[in-house]
Design a protein around this nucleic acid. Structure first.
Lengths: 114, 114
DNA sequence: CGGGATCCGCCTAGATACTG
DNA sequence: CAGTATCTAGGCGGATCCCG
C-alpha cells in the first residue's frame, strides 16, 4: 500500500497515475515543463479543453503540490502564472518519457505526414 | 494533432495517456513488465480490482497491441497467459519511470514505515 | 479457470453563462 | 484576464451472477 495526500494506492504506479492521470494533467505538465505560463497561454496551447476543466485540473495539481500559482496584479484584469514546484520538477523525466513515447509511436506506425 | 488506432490526440503526451491512462492499465503493465502472468496471478497481484474491470482493461490493452493473450488449453478449465508485445515492451521505460516516481514520492514525504 | 452479461453509481469532463 | 456556477452526459469502474 502506498499513500500520498491522504489517498491510498495499491501500487507505486497507480500512485503516480493518481497524480498525473486523467485526460489533461500530463498535457498541462508537458507545457509547463520548462517555463511558467499564464492561464490564457495554456488555453491557447490546449484549444480543445474547456475553461472549467482546465481550471479544475490546475487546482488539483496545485493542491497536490505539483504546480504553483502566482498572481501578479492586485486588481482585475488579473495576471496569473503557473509553474512547476520543486516536487513538480521531479516529474519532468516522467512526463518527458510519456511525451517521447507518444512521438515514438506516431513515427513508428503510420507516421504523421512523412 | 497526433493519431493512434483511429483516435486523435491534441498532444503527444495525451496520446500516451490515452493508451496507458485509467486507473489500472499502468498497474497491469507494471506487473507484466518482465514476465507473462496468468489471469489469476494478475488478480492476486491486484486484489482490489474487480474481475470485470481487469478483463476489460486487458482487452483494451490487447486491442491497442500493447499486450498479447495466449491460451494454452483447448477446453475449460482454461489456462491463459498475458504478456507484453514488442510494442508493449517499448513502454517499459515509461511504466518504469511512472513506478519509480511513485516510490520516490513515498520515500520523500512521510515515508512508508521507515 | 477465465471470463461474459447485466445493472448501476460516480466522477470526469463538456457546454454555456456569468463575475471580480 | 482569469476564472466560477450550474447543468448535463458519457464513460470508467464496481457488484453480482452466470457460462464454456
Amino acid at each position: 500500500m502506498y499513500q500520498f495526500k491522504g489517498k491510498e494506492y495499491p501500487c507505486c504506479a497507480s500512485l503516480t497515475m493518481g497524480i498525473i492521470g486523467g485526460k489533461w494533467k500530463t498535457v498541462i505538465l508537458f507545457h509547463l515543463r520548462d517555463k511558467a505560463l499564464r492561464y490564457s497561454e495554456l488555453r491557447k496551447k490546449m484549444p480543445t479543453v474547456t475553461e472549467r476543466t482546465l481550471s479544475l485540473q490546475l487546482k488539483t495539481l496545485e493542491d497536490d503540490g505539483i504546480i504553483k500559482r502566482k498572481v501578479y496584479t492586485p486588481k482585475p484584469p488579473l495576471k496569473v502564472e503557473y509553474s512547476l514546484t520543486d516536487l513538480g520538477k521531479t516529474l519532468k523525466p516522467v512526463v518527458q518519457s510519456i511525451a517521447d513515447w507518444g512521438v515514438f509511436v506516431v513515427e513508428e506506425q503510420g507516421g504523421p505526414t512523412v
